[in-house]
Amino acid sequence: MKRHHLGLTLFAAWLCSVPLAADDGVFDQYRDLMGDDNPAVFVIDEGEELWFMPQGPESATLEACDLGLGPGVTAGAYVRFPRYFADADAVMDLESRLVHCMTTIQGRDLEAVTAKPYSLRGDFGTEMEALVTWLAAESEGATIAPEQTHAAERAMYSLGEEIFYYRAGPHDFSCATCHEQSGMRIRLQALPDLTSHTGAAEAWGSWPAYRISQGLVRTMGWRLRDCFRQQRWPELQMGSEASIALQTYMAVNAAGGTMTAPGLKR
């Protein structure tokens, strides 16, 4: 995993050479400096390999997996998520859809494929992270257009909005505490206003992202889980209804924006 260290070293060297700005602009400059050299490219390749790799008792690839545009269609599929799937009678995010395909097509054990969806610091990336990264890249440059035609999809948006404002825990934090105002920041970290189209498009459109500080690609599912950790809540589960509802809230607010993932974050 030499590439991780390279990214960190480049970043540290570059950071020392610029004055500390009191906003996120410094990281925007860093992104520009990196150009197309996002270390996520290695993870994209890994995800593509995993899609075409026979796995599980069925020794099947994921080519028969229907991401909403037909079996095996990956280009432009991610920007339509979260969406309703009749075969599962559920609104799914990309992560839960992949779990569905791994269990139904490859015949893999549900507990095994959901045991550790997100890597810990210092780990290599997980299969889920690699697949999501590749599939996001398959939508790079596409317009964010989550499905809102089925009643279940619209109900998921309303549920997401309610959860977004739900205050709980010893600190009384909700998502809205940090993400309902524009132009604010925590310490030096700029906070997107997820109730606005601009903020939601910027946030939804830039995950999954390569986290320089962690040397890993992180998915939106992980981003939400880590927000709730900081909110002092229990742990959000991948593919849970709350996770899908919040992603629907963000994706619909972001509709019309451009998918730029995989992004590059501090």
Binding site: I163, P234, E241, A242
Partner: peptide, 22 residues
């Protein structure tokens, strides 16, 4: 919402499920 949250979160260390009650 409370039912959804109950099914979506799992207690972890000191962050217990009681924290979801308002």
């Amino acid at each position: 919402i409370e039912a959804v949250l109950h099914n979506s979160f799992v207690a972890k260390n000191q962050a217990t499920m009681e924290r979801l009650e308002r």
